[in-house]
Amino acid sequence: MTETVRLGRILGVRVGLHWSVLGIVLLLVLGLSTTQLPDVLPGYPAWAYVLTAVAIALLFAISLLAHEVSHAVVARRNGIEVDGITLWLLGGVARLRSEPRTPGADLRVAVIGPLTSIGCGALFGLAAFLVSIGDLHPLLRVLFLYLAGVNVLLAVFNMIPAAPLDGGRVLRAAVWAWRGDRLMAAVWSARAGRWFGFLLITLGLVRLLLGYGLGLWWILIGLFVVHVASAEEQRARLGTALSGMRVDDVMTPEPDTAHGDRNVSDFLRDVALVRRHSAFPLLDDSGRLQGMVTLNRLRGVAPGERERTPLRAVACPPAEIVLAEPGEPLTALLPRLGSCADGRALVYDRGTLVGIVTPSDVSRAVALSGLGVTWHEGADVTNETGNGYRTRH
């Protein structure tokens, strides 16, 4: 999930919003101000309900942010790299660049989120109690009671043992500790997530057919759970296939580069047409990275604009390009490849660009792994017969 608006950093963790977060805010404000709040406390003007609903939506978003920040902070304390946090339509996502090294670390990262939600619920419950004994405005009491209840509900829902929920992480950690096999644990958690997603979709369809509300919302959540759980199982199997490989085992060395000031028309004629690559890092005269262009990005420049459009104007900016080191485990790089530049990463060795990793490089590595090829330290490759060869160019 890519952020649309960057909010800054909280406790050193980058935080952003996806545009779809407006969806949950609008749904909460409309539902609360038009039906739920007037039903609970009738007789107040419409503006009072709308103001209360907006406050609930904003405080709920802050609660979701606290939930995800707690995951990120504990992950970093357990040696797991965190790329950032994005709030979106169905809640929040803490993007982890690497995986937990032990079942205990996996468990700690998983349980802190629901514990934080329960803590938020307790704080809001205490606020509702203080409002009651202070004889303050009834809508203020309802506001805090709603937030207390929804945070506890969020904690309970997240502890369902199915990926990608926090309970799925707990299940993964437990199976990992029990069986000593992280792949098996990840597969069990992912399959539980798929079944749970299908259950939500089925219940949503039943509610729609019977005329109950929120059926479409259940279906949407179910589809999301099925999609993410399936992706997690695929990623776990991919990580096992690529175990032991390093970035420099699979990278394409010495990639073709270009200058960011060159216009798109000249570049297409003189470089793109005669080279067999689809991605080109942009370097200035001193070798500093200016960005990266791909053929897909250049396709978006109208023919009439190509003569006066410099490459850097359509390039993926340097801050969003995935960087790697030659000796880095390939499995540590994979979670970062889903960002800018069409899943590519640039490889730097002591400040010098030495290679690029593309989806085709990773696919080739997976294919070799399926043929029984294994990577050993030093990038010596050994086949099933024990005959060694080198993969570097």
Results as ranks from 00 to 15, higher is better:
residue 227 H to F: 14
residue 197 G to L: 09
residue 47 W to D: 14
residue 387 N to I: 15
residue 301 V to Y: 11
residue 153 L to R: 11
residue 330 L to F: 04
residue 140 L to I: 13
residue 283 L to P: 08
residue 248 D to F: 07
residue 42 P to K: 10
residue 111 V to D: 08
residue 351 G to Y: 00
residue 373 V to D: 01
residue 315 A to W: 08
residue 372 G to A: 07
residue 232 E to L: 15
residue 2 T to Q: 15
residue 173 A to Y: 01
residue 38 P to M: 02
residue 323 L to N: 07
residue 340 C to W: 11
residue 358 T to G: 09
residue 306 R to L: 09
residue 117 S to C: 01
residue 385 T to C: 07
residue 77 R to W: 14
residue 126 L to D: 08
residue 95 R to E: 12
residue 49 Y to P: 07
residue 304 G to P: 10
residue 78 N to C: 10
residue 159 M to T: 14
residue 121 G to R: 05
residue 304 G to R: 13
residue 62 I to Y: 13
residue 100 P to N: 05
residue 31 G to H: 01
residue 270 D to C: 06
residue 342 D to G: 03
residue 275 R to F: 08
residue 155 A to N: 12
residue 22 L to Q: 06
residue 8 G to L: 05
residue 104 G to W: 11
residue 296 N to Y: 12
residue 223 L to T: 04
residue 343 G to P: 06
residue 303 P to I: 11
residue 273 L to I: 05
residue 215 G to R: 09
residue 125 G to M: 06
residue 282 L to Q: 06
residue 381 V to I: 13
residue 38 P to N: 01
residue 85 I to W: 04
residue 144 F to N: 12
residue 110 A to H: 05
residue 212 Y to L: 15
residue 386 G to M: 09
residue 10 I to Y: 07
residue 164 P to F: 02
residue 320 E to C: 03
residue 288 R to V: 04
residue 33 S to Q: 06
residue 148 A to H: 03
residue 122 A to G: 12
residue 44 Y to N: 08
residue 303 P to G: 12
residue 92 G to A: 07
residue 15 V to G: 03
residue 247 V to S: 07
residue 330 L to C: 08
residue 310 P to W: 03
residue 79 G to Y: 07
residue 169 R to D: 00
residue 194 R to H: 08
residue 105 A to G: 10
residue 318 P to Q: 12
residue 266 D to L: 13
residue 350 R to W: 05
residue 131 V to S: 14
residue 341 A to T: 01
residue 328 E to L: 13
residue 241 A to P: 01
residue 45 P to F: 06
residue 311 L to A: 10
residue 376 H to C: 01
residue 171 L to R: 01
residue 215 G to P: 11
residue 156 V to G: 06
residue 223 L to Y: 05
residue 137 H to P: 02
residue 116 T to P: 02
residue 180 G to F: 03
residue 176 W to Y: 05
residue 331 T to K: 09
residue 88 W to S: 05
residue 285 D to Y: 09
residue 23 G to H: 02
residue 360 S to F: 05
residue 182 R to H: 00
residue 27 L to F: 14
residue 334 L to D: 02
residue 54 V to Q: 05
residue 72 A to I: 13
residue 321 I to R: 09
residue 90 L to C: 05
residue 290 Q to E: 15
residue 249 D to T: 12
residue 374 T to Y: 02
residue 132 S to F: 11
residue 15 V to P: 02
residue 260 G to N: 11
residue 144 F to K: 10
residue 269 R to V: 14
residue 18 H to P: 07
residue 93 V to P: 00
residue 245 M to G: 10
residue 109 V to Q: 06
residue 376 H to G: 13
residue 74 V to E: 05
residue 338 G to V: 04
residue 6 R to E: 10
residue 290 Q to I: 08
residue 150 V to M: 07
residue 181 D to Y: 00
residue 101 R to F: 02
residue 95 R to I: 08
residue 256 D to A: 15
residue 261 D to I: 02
residue 46 A to W: 11
residue 167 G to R: 09
residue 12 G to H: 11
residue 44 Y to G: 03
residue 365 A to K: 02
residue 80 I to K: 10
residue 142 V to S: 03
residue 86 T to C: 10
residue 355 G to L: 05
residue 145 L to C: 08
residue 132 S to Q: 14
residue 191 R to C: 01
residue 377 E to G: 13
residue 66 A to C: 15
residue 27 L to H: 10
residue 194 R to W: 03
residue 67 H to Y: 09
residue 207 R to A: 12
residue 243 S to T: 12
residue 200 L to N: 00
residue 120 C to A: 15
residue 192 A to F: 01
residue 34 T to G: 01
residue 227 H to S: 15
residue 346 L to Y: 02
residue 169 R to N: 07
residue 73 V to M: 09
